[in-house]
Nucleic acid binder design. Structure first.
Length: 616
RNA sequence: GCCGAAGUAGCUCAGCUGGUAGAGCAAUUCAUUCGUAAUGAAUAGGUCGUCGGUUCGAAUCCGAUCUUCGGCUCCA
């Protein structure tokens, strides 16, 4: 067990103080575990009473008493037999005996005691409870014992603790500020997207402003793909069920899909012959009835495009790209703004290549992902290699193919010049993958860019090409999506920029603020000039004072504004004020500003200032 | 899907123990023509998520349901 940092130690101790208080208030409680986390700690408890916010207050009050008593934390080491006796004597056998059994033979077994409270615990802890100078209980949530949904759901109490009150306040303040850049809040305020009950949960409606951002991102990637020798394709939103039986989607990921669509008359016909819904379902499973599936992935259709013609090794790699919209039945509790939805568009592509080309092609994909992240100034990501979980049966294909694919990915990742971690169980059902993972404003991780190596689907679809030896060979597939999905990527991007987009992405790039009505015609002339250069520009012709117009432009997060007053007008100039690129500021002619701005757009220049500042 | 919380005007929210709704901002209209983050006044806007129940009477109490939020599980 690795050593705890002083802060982790403090928080871990605070979770013991929490448990101490809970046992005082609810002596029947059975405790599970209470570790420190990245931003605080929690304790999982099993008690009859459903805790609510007012109970948290009472528990906090009791915790303060425990701290005031300044109890000493003492380590008690003992043998396994003694530990069993001790756990029984304190009446905590329901979970603690299982936790004790987890400790490998030969490892030391220890308890920690503070006051009347004793807990099986490896440590470490602060010396005395008074060391915990500042803490706060934050929320209650359900959490399955050992994270297994077949187990009982316990009540998890989350809290955080710091060495001083000031640090706690700074943390709570930061939390508050982070929420101000939440993409769901900014999405509404800046009119970027809308989710409507009447359309359905997890279905994103891209409103005009958001659509501009998406369009710009798509144009950007499409241009890069052209240069990297990808070919554009289009495919429909549904396909025959049989296609997905072949790919493995239908049997293997049935629970994550919308149910099949059957042909007109099928249901009525079956009903007449007295067929039950269960039988219908069985017949769909067995293939007696063929329906259609809303596509959960684009790959089977791209495979069919590849397979529509014979291929020579000279043709490879074939790279087929599509902004393909897919639909997945995500659990209702998982839906989240734009970052977890039921219908989304991937910037998808599938590369069909020879085994020798795999390394180089993965490299090309990783370069593309890195280019995307660099262009947008997203440096705060981690790289994960998702491997199969050896104990699970949810994967297609044999072990040898998986080993080959995993080795290819690992090798490519090593040349990436970023640190990566390998995580078993994170693979796709047809192959391992390299994922680029970022955090949202409240610390949740989301997978964006992904590169996946697949030896299995070519096998299932019996793909082939003719090699130099005039024999048939099996190509290897690479699935890749630098953004992941447009929805999730934009959600994360909104938070990354706190709504202050670089000029090339901003829905409104320039706003002209004429000082009074007389100057509106002149403002319209400038607007016309900029519009002719495809700049997204508006004129604020409302009879407000300048201060009000400036304020509104700031709140709308428009990157550049042109103030047009009498002074400027007489010289044929405008005053440039720029949130995004202060270096553009100054009094200059519209033509001068325009050429500088066009350069900024062409270069995809990032905002110069740290635009983390959120809202008013 | 599970645990918990919440749904009142476009947005943010108030409405105590039941007597059929209110503020600020936004919107609209009028006046103001103004020099760097809010000019003033007036007007309009809600079957209180939905359905059902209790009651003389429900935003308020009860039940169901939908949606959202925080977790858990899941995640191709």
């Amino acid at each position: 067990m690795k050593a705890m940092s002083p802060l982790e130690e403090l928080r871990h101790s605070c979770s013991h103080i929490l448990a101490t208080a809970i046992l005082r208030l609810y002596p029947d409680t059975q405790l599970d575990i209470g570790p420190p986390t990245e931003n605080g700690f929690y304790y999982d408890v099993d008690l009859e009473k459903k805790l609510d916010a007012s109970d948290l207050e009472a528990i906090e009050a009791e915790m303060k008493k425990v701290i005031k008593e300044n109890q000493k934390f003492e380590r008690i080491e003992c043998s396994r037999e003694e530990a069993i006796t001790k756990i029984k004597s304190i009446g905590q056998e329901r979970y603690k005996l299982g936790r004790l059994a987890d400790i490998p033979e030969g490892e030391p077994i220890s308890f920690y005691q503070n006051g009347e409270f004793i807990d099986l615990c490896a440590g470490s802890h602060v010396g005395y409870t008074k060391k915990v100078k500042a803490f706060k209980l934050l929320s209650i949530a359900g959490a399955y014992h050992r994270g297994d949904e077949n187990n009982k759901q316990l009540q998890r109490i989350y809290g955080t603790a710091f060495g001083s009150k000031e640090e706690l306040e700074v943390y709570l303040e930061r939390l508050e500020q982070a929420r101000a850049r939440d993409h769901r809040k900014l999405g509404r305020e800046l009119k970027l997207f809308h989710i409507d009950e009447a359309v359905g949960s997890g279905m994103v409606l891209w409103t005009p402003n958001g659509a501009i951002i998406r369009q710009e991102l798509q144009s950007f990637i499409a241009e890069e793909l052209r240069m990297a020798d990808y070919e554009q394709v289009f495919t429909p939103h549904i396909g025959k069920l049989g296609l997905y039986r072949t790919s493995g989607h239908f049997p293997y990921y049935k629970e994550s899909q919308f149910p099949p669509i059957v042909e007109p008359g099928t249901v009525e016909h079956l009903a007449e012959s007295g067929c039950s819904c269960g039988e219908l379902s069985n017949q769909l499973d067995s293939g007696e009835i063929d329906g259609y599936l809303l596509k959960p992935m684009n790959c089977p259709m791209h495979i069919k495009i590849f397979d529509s013609q014979p291929h020579s090794y000279r043709d490879l790699p074939v790279r087929l790209a599509e902004f393909g919209t897919v639909y997945r039945w995500e659990q209702s509790g998982e839906l989240n703004g734009m970052t977890r939805v039921r219908g989304f568009t991937q910037d998808d592509a599938h590369i069909f290549c020879t085994e020798e080309q795999v390394g180089q092609e993965i490299q090309g994909c990783l370069d593309l992902v890195k280019l995307v992240f660099n262009t947008l100034g997203m440096q705060d990501y981690r790289v994960r290699i998702g491997l199969r979980d050896p104990d699970s049966s949810k994967y297609v294909g044999d072990a040898a193919k998986w080993d080959k694919a995993e080795a290819a990915l690992r090798e490519a990742a090593q040349t990436l010049e970023v640190q990566f971690v390998e995580e078993p169980g994170e693979a796709a059902f047809y192959g391992p993958k390299i994922d680029f993972v970022v955090k949202d404003v409240i610390g949740r991780e989301w997978q964006l860019g992904t590169v996946q190596v697949d030896y299995n689907l070519p096998e299932r679809f019996k793909l082939s090409y003719i090699g130099a030896d005039n024999e048939k060979h099996r190509p290897v597939m690479i699935h890749r999506a630098p953004f992941g999905s447009m929805e999730r990527f934009c959600g994360v991007l909104i938070e990354h920029f706190a709504g202050n987009f670089p000029t090339w992405l901003a829905p409104e790039q320039v706003r002209i603020l004429p000082m009074n009505d007389d100057l509106v015609p002149q403002a319209r002339e400038i607007e016309k000039l900029l519009k002719a250069a495809k700049i997204r520009v508006t004129v604020d012709a409302v009879a407000d004072k300048l201060g009000a117009k400036i304020r509104k432009t700031h709140l709308d997060k428009v990157p550049h504004m042109l103030v047009l007053g009498k002074r400027e007008a007489e010289e044929g100039k405008v005053q440039v004020k720029s949130r995004a690129n202060p270096s553009l500021e100054g009094v200059k002619t519209p033509a001068e500003f325009m050429s500088e701005l066009l350069q900024t757009i062409a270069d995809k220049t990032l905002p110069e200032s740290e635009s983390a500042e959120a809202g008013s």
